Simulated assay, not measured.
Amino acid sequence: MTICRDCCCGSARKHPDVDHDAQLAALRAAVGERHRVRVSECLSVCERSNVVVVHPAPAARRAGARLVHLGDVLEDHLVGAVAAWLDAGGPGLAEVPPVLTPRVFDPADYAD
């Protein structure tokens, strides 16, 4: 999984009510050693900050699963939902949890 933490994502200016460091720590703690968490510079979809990109497991990717982009991941319960989805198999192996479905977006819709 990749977490955007740059100009808007992770910004106290844009999201002053979110403890971005605590959110990242909670996500890392929730997935533990089972899943890798990368921090990225700007992913250029600032309209959807905070952005989390969920990667399919290698077997699912070989079977055709693709990255899933989630935007507006601002509440703690969403962090738990992402972790639970990964533990259930993630993209290509488990359905997107209903609480995350409204947050799925196509980054091509935001391309310049």
Rank of each mutant, 00 (worst) to 15 (best):
C46P: 07
G90T: 12
V37G: 10
R13Y: 14
P102I: 06
C4E: 02
K14T: 13
R66D: 04
R28K: 15
D87W: 00
R5H: 13
A63S: 11
A60Q: 13
R36P: 05
D112C: 06
R38S: 10
P91H: 06
R28E: 15
R13S: 11
D87F: 03
H55P: 00
G10N: 10
A83I: 14
R5D: 12
R61Q: 10
C46G: 12
G71E: 01
A65V: 01
V104W: 07
V39F: 02
C9P: 10
L78G: 06
P98G: 13
P102L: 09
L43P: 02
V96N: 00
D17F: 10
L70D: 02
L27T: 08
P97A: 06
R36L: 13
G71P: 01
V73C: 01
W85T: 03
L27G: 07
D72M: 03
L86K: 02
G90S: 13
R28W: 00
H20Y: 06
V79K: 09
A26N: 11
R38Y: 02
H20T: 05
A65L: 03
Q23E: 09
V104Q: 06
L93N: 08
V104I: 13
V45E: 11
P107I: 14
D72G: 11
C46H: 12
D112H: 14
L67M: 11
C4H: 02
A83L: 12
A30V: 08
L27R: 05
E33A: 12
P91R: 05
R36F: 03
A60Y: 07
V99P: 01
G32A: 09
G71S: 03
D19T: 07
R28S: 09
V68S: 06
S11C: 12
A94S: 11
L70M: 04
G64P: 00
D6I: 00
